[in-house]
């Protein structure tokens, strides 16, 4: 048993490297070196029960890889994922892993690819129930599927249809129903609304909030959309090139961002209120993650970069705002006010 304020999920020094070298023969012929993509390179975070942590960042920052590491689709190169006090990598038997596994589920980005096109909705939603043998009586399973479909705003009659008969938003509801069917406590949501239209996105975000309240769910939410993250999260982690640069309460991050990259991201959001807020032009692009800059990976785009930033990787420290920030400028107090 874990203490009451212990995190439900924690990542400890989580890293995942991919070998993206060309085939052996080509390397031997051209003398090309081995190439390693450090998609995630030492990430630490904790999620408390009932809380939503969002990871936000631009493409290639490693946020989706973190999601896949947490649910076990990838094995970490270093570090570990701890679920309710249990180190996932240390689970010896398949049965033990399965018992933990049914306590978390995942919702994917593409509602057109995440449902097997040849299965009927009823079978899709019931899959976790059948896989973990949570129920055996077909009538009971059927009743549970109907209940789940109603819970996500579909009708029990939809059970006998195929995924292609539904719109993107409805398919995402089916995905959510499937994720909920094993009564999980923790959901990993990888860009669940980025393929949807805004009005449908609002429906899904509202549904996710309602379900969280009703079922006491804990979310790890992956998104590139800061406005969505602002709406859904309790805490936010900003990622850049495989590392967390700033983690903190949603209010702190949005009101008093510390890391220059967080500030840059916030500045880049289109101004929907049309307040005439002046915008700092953002320079540069994300570098190639196979060959990241030395020192702080953000230094080539950072207006505050010094020699130290170009040499030394900054460590995460708690800033005066309460957020955890990995930045030499913040640590040295060189940060200009905003």
């Amino acid at each position: 048993m874990s203490p009451p304020d212990a995190p439900l999920v924690a990542a400890r020094g989580l890293a995942r490297h991919f070998d993206v070298s060309r085939p052996l023969l080509n390397r031997l012929l051209d003398g090309a070196p081995r190439q390693v993509l450090r998609a995630v390179d030492g990430v630490d975070f904790e999620i408390r029960k009932g809380e939503t942590l969002s990871l936000v960042g631009e493409s290639g920052c490693g946020k989706s890889t973190v999601a896949r590491l947490v649910v076990g689709l990838y094995r970490p190169t270093r570090g570990s994922v701890v679920f309710d006090g249990t180190d996932m990598a240390a689970l010896a038997s398949r049965a033990a892993a399965e018992r933990v596994r049914r306590r978390f589920q995942m919702i994917f980005q593409d509602p057109y690819a995440s449902l097997n096109p040849r299965w009927r909705v009823g079978r899709i939603v019931a899959e976790p129930i059948v896989a973990h043998a949570l129920m055996s009586d077909p009538a009971a399973i059927r009743a549970r599927v109907d209940e789940l479909l109603l819970q996500v705003g579909l009708s029990p009659a939809d059970r006998d249809k195929f995924p292609h008969e539904f719109s993107g938003g409805q398919r995402q509801r089916i995905s959510i129903a499937r994720a909920l069917s094993s009564n999980p406590e923790f959901l990993v949501c990888d860009e669940p609304t980025s393929a949807l239209d805004v009005s449908v996105q609002a429906q899904i975000l509202n549904l996710m909030k309602d379900l969280q309240r009703a079922l006491g769910l804990t979310y790890l939410f992956i998104s590139h959309n800061l406005a969505v993250v602002h709406y859904i999260s309790d805490r936010v982690g900003v990622m850049y090139l495989g590392r967390l640069v700033e983690t903190g309460d949603v209010k702190t991050i949005f009101a008093r961002p510390q890391h220059p990259y967080t500030r840059m991201l916030l500045d880049a959001i289109p101004d929907l209120e049309m307040s005439g807020r002046p915008r700092t032009p953002v320079a540069g692009e994300v570098p190639n993650p196979i060959d990241p800059p030395p020192g702080c990976a953000f230094h080539p785009r950072c207006p505050l970069a010094t020699d130290r930033c170009r040499r030394e990787v900054p460590l995460a420290r708690v800033a005066p705002t309460g957020a955890t920030v990995a930045c030499h400028a913040v640590e040295e107090g060189r940060l200009p006010p905003r």
Partner: peptide, 12 residues
């Protein structure tokens, strides 16, 4: 239905 950063709403 568009989430906005300037305002905190309970529901969209």
């Amino acid at each position: 239905s568009i989430p906005k950063i300037g305002e905190t709403v309970g529901r969209l």
